[in-house]
Design a protein around this nucleic acid. Structure first.
Lengths: 337, 337
DNA sequence: TAAATTTTGTAAAACGTTTTACGTTGTTTG
DNA sequence: CAAACAACGTAAAACGTTTTACAAAATTTA
């Protein structure tokens, strides 16, 4: 195939040295006569010269790349999160390398390895099954900065947080205010720290209302997907719950399907609320009451923190707290009797 | 910060030459005594040596990377498409570099440039606004293989196709079979070739049934998103259509919201069908009738074709045709009177 | 006009790999 | 026992950049 034009080809064509070309093309060309500058620039276009990425990174020791690992790109929460990352990365002149691991630990580790090879900058990891041990042994040893989402709080390190405890509290209080006395919470097995936070906040509000958690609330374990919500339907119906807190919106939408199938009307027969506030919430019937997370901002802040860390590895750890809020729509109402 | 261990460090530690280390680590070490091999391997683990990506690619002239450009990662169609790409790329030992351009031409060009810099392998482009001119001038000149989706058919080049014409035909025939006589089609402005294919197929079936397209069908232009579908509601209602063909499922779901808001029942008052068969279709009420595209397979085949092309640039162009099929659910029925 | 300074440019080292071509040793063969 | 051949290993070139240190020519200064 046609050879790529190299900087040497261009230098030869322009009848100047390689140094000259390099300097001019990298904006450090004030030292050269404007005649030479124009000449080189013109020939660059003409020969369609693009610097070799690998050669350049090799010498510069930076590829302006960050790695991003999420459980599932298809989940609207994560696709929005990624959008936030991409926008901010573009602004900061970084390129995100994005992987979805489909909740598979093998795949996660595979991608983690690939990211370490390539994403010399740093990593944003939003994934459950990567253990702290793995992270310590692999990332720390390689001296690669990283930022963990949805994971156990690490003592050291940067952090982008939303107040999940408060979010759970908001959810419970909303249902309590409507008059509900019996609740169900759907949550995955081995919930991550943020999900536990939501559950604890929920529990706190329940107990604050004078109820006994174990009596008032049924916790139902199911995968955190639409399909998982659908699967949880029978258990929810078997419980005497009139108010359901799905730990994310996708599960809530899965429950919608199950309820529909069982002729249980929302919110007349049962109130359902979710968590995240994905844009789909306004398109389902009834519109979904939920707790909003600033997803785009989470992606943005994660990127900023990581890039700052890359630039100043020794900086003291940064924490960013983002607010959550209750969004009341039509999927919740007072219980039947 | 801590220096990365280089191959030289490892060679020194193992008291062998750099060549030896390189060969052994790349599986070409049969020439060496097994004692040496073990020794080197052991020290690699111990020193946590990972070959420098850039140095390696520089000399090997291949980064095992492909670029992927889609309009919108949040659209379930594309997130599934990406999933197919990631799975296949993993199998083929390639890494996909994924970008979502949010239908913004500036951003598309920016990412295109970045991909050319980095994704030395080849590109999968599923994006509307990149013009053939741009592609020719940039990609061809750089000799980078690429594969276009959802775009005007290029005479030359590889291609993964579904039969959009037939899909449109299936949609129309389904509505005709139910007894509908008045139709609406929602489609974006400046539709891409595949969308036009659907529309033409629809028209073909309508005319085959003895109807006059311009009289029987109202074409409504609106963005191809949930919000776009929602926006199209009034125009759909103003038309006398009893059967609506949304050019993709997202638009159909946007229409659901609009219909709900106007107390128009689906399918009793109006039949709606979509296109794609995203997994959400089974979670909306009523479940959405649609034309299925094998999205995952499209991602898979696109990746295979591209990688084949990378390996054998001179191979004759390949075409893959994937089937579409009608999926009847609950959003369509016979018209009212 | 000689010295100093600015302007404009270049040669060569360095980055961390892979690979080609070439050496040793030691063992077998005739 | 010399020659041939394995077995095991290495030196050095190459990949395409950026950058440092140096140099020649042109201009200014004293």
């Amino acid at each position: 195939m046609r050879k790529k034009t190299t900087i040497r080809d261009l230098a030869q064509a322009a009848d100047v040295s390689v140094t000259t070309v390099s300097q001019i093309l990298n904006g450090k060309g004030e030292r050269f006569s404007s005649a030479t500058q124009q000449h080189v620039l013109k020939l660059q276009k003409q020969l369609n010269y693009v610097p070799d990425f690998n050669a350049r990174n090799l010498i510069m020791k930076s590829s302006q790349t960050i790695g991003v690992l999420v459980p599932n790109i298809g989940n609207p929460f994560f696709s929005t999160f990624i959008k936030g990352i991409q926008e901010t990365a573009r602004e900061l002149q970084y390129i995100p390398l994005i992987f979805g691991a489909n909740h598979d630990e093998k795949i996660e580790n595979y991608y983690l390895e690939k990211m370490i090879e390539r994403a010399t900058g740093g990593l944003i990891i939003a994934s459950a099954s990567i253990t702290i041990a793995t992270i310590d042994s692999i990332l720390k040893k390689n001296g690669i900065p990283y930022l963990l989402m949805d994971q156990n709080p690490i003592v050291e390190g940067d952090r982008v947080q939303t107040n999940d405890f408060s979010g759970g509290e908001l959810a419970a209080q909303h249902l309590l205010d409507l008059g509900h006395k019996h609740f169900a919470v759907t949550i995955p097995n081995n919930p991550t720290a943020n999900l536990l936070g939501r559950l604890n906040g929920f529990r706190y509000a329940i107990e604050r209302a004078g109820l006994v958690f174990a009596q008032a609330v049924t916790v139902i374990y199911s995968p955190m997907t639409k399909a998982g919500g659908y699967l949880a339907t029978q258990d929810v119906l078997k419980s005497s719950a009139t108010g359901v807190f799905a730990i994310n919106d996708e599960m809530a939408i899965g429950l919608y399907r199950g309820m529909m199938q069982n002729n249980v009307r929302i919110p007349t027969d049962i109130s359902i609320m979710g968590y995240d506030n994905i844009d789909l919430d306004e398109y389902v019937t009834p519109k979904l009451t939920t707790v909003q997370q600033p997803i785009l901002a989470m992606g943005e802040m994660a990127t900023r923190l990581l890039v700052n860390r890359i630039k100043k590895p020794m900086m003291t750890p940064q924490k960013v707290d983002l607010p959550v809020s209750l969004v009341v729509r039509q999927s919740t109402s007072a219980p039947r009797n």
